[in-house]
């Protein structure tokens, strides 16, 4: 066995919600028995954007706000990898908000876990776009995602509800590994240092996974439930929406493994060249 880097110890404050997310990812990897070298964790910049150092898989530390396009590039170029993107709510919905919309629409095969704490933890507690003193919470990215054609998996977890969080992580990973597309999992992951919301958030959540009448394949119902809950100052948790729309798509083989030797393609290259002949 080749010795590689020793996974780092988390740098988070004791009690930080991000521990729960890391636990769920590690649990899901073990549960699905995916070899670590077949996984790459793509991280944003923030407290949350250090998770990739702690797991032992391939890891990448993206630019702030750019984890989605970078992960899309990885997922398109090597569909054999299991790509897990992680990051904060500032990364996702402020500096990277434009990419979020387009990524949901493109529906590439990777998991995106946003650790939402409503603050910029790393830069010491400024408000993020999910913070809003008036409403229950600011931007609700699950509903934003619902509004975009192409959305294929939308879920919300809570970092303290660890069993469900692992289930949701497994479901998201299975979704992408089956080639169904982009799996968006927002995790309410409180920042104990700048905005401790464990109690308030837990009180606001309604767990849809416990409601046998809820049909997560019904887009209109998913919207209606989100709106109705918000009116009561509450929000949904669990699998909010899933669609098989992306199933059966043709996925190209890993480009990195293709034969690019010019000699192999010389006839076709010559054809292209002769189209310019004068």
């Amino acid at each position: 066995m080749t010795k590689t880097y020793t996974p780092a110890e988390p740098i988070w404050c004791a009690g930080c919600g991000d521990f729960g997310v890391q636990g769920a990812i590690e649990g899901a990897i073990a549960q699905l028995a995916i070899p670590k070298h077949d996984i790459i964790i793509m991280a944003g910049i923030g407290c949350s954007g250090t998770l990739q150092n702690n797991v032992g898989t391939y890891g990448y530390h993206a630019l702030h706000g750019r984890v989605l396009p970078t992960s899309t590039g990885v997922a398109y170029a090597n569909p054999e990898l299991t790509v897990i993107a992680v990051g904060g709510d500032g990364d996702a919905f402020a500096i990277g908000a434009g990419h979020f919309i387009h990524t949901v629409k493109r529906n590439p095969n990777f998991v995106y876990i946003v650790m939402n704490n409503s603050v910029y933890g790393l830069t010491k507690g400024q408000d993020s776009p999910t913070m809003d003193a008036g409403a229950a919470h600011g931007i609700d990215a699950t509903r934003l995602a619902l509004s975009i054609p192409g959305a294929s998996f939308i879920a919300r977890g809570f970092s303290r509800w660890s069993r469900q969080l692992q289930e949701l992580t497994v479901a998201a990973m299975e979704h992408v590994r089956a080639g169904r597309g982009f799996a968006f999992l927002e995790v309410l992951s409180p920042c104990v240092t700048y905005h401790d919301t464990y109690v308030t958030w837990e009180g606001m959540l309604e767990n849809l996974d416990d409601d046998p009448t809820y049909d997560p394949t019904d887009l209109a119902a998913a919207f209606a439930r989100g709106v109705a809950l918000e009116a009561q100052g509450r929000m949904p948790a669990g699998v909010i929406f899933r669609s098989d729309g992306g199933a059966g798509r043709k996925i190209p083989p890993a480009m990195a493994l293709q034969d690019i030797d010019p000699a192999r393609h010389i006839d076709r290259y010559n054809d292209i060249m002769s189209s310019y002949a004068v």
Partner: peptide
Amino acid sequence: AEDELSAINLAIGAAMTGVR
């Protein structure tokens, strides 16, 4: 891409996997 920020990061992602 949706903008140039995305474009270069898409390419970075692909390049990381060994694709030219």
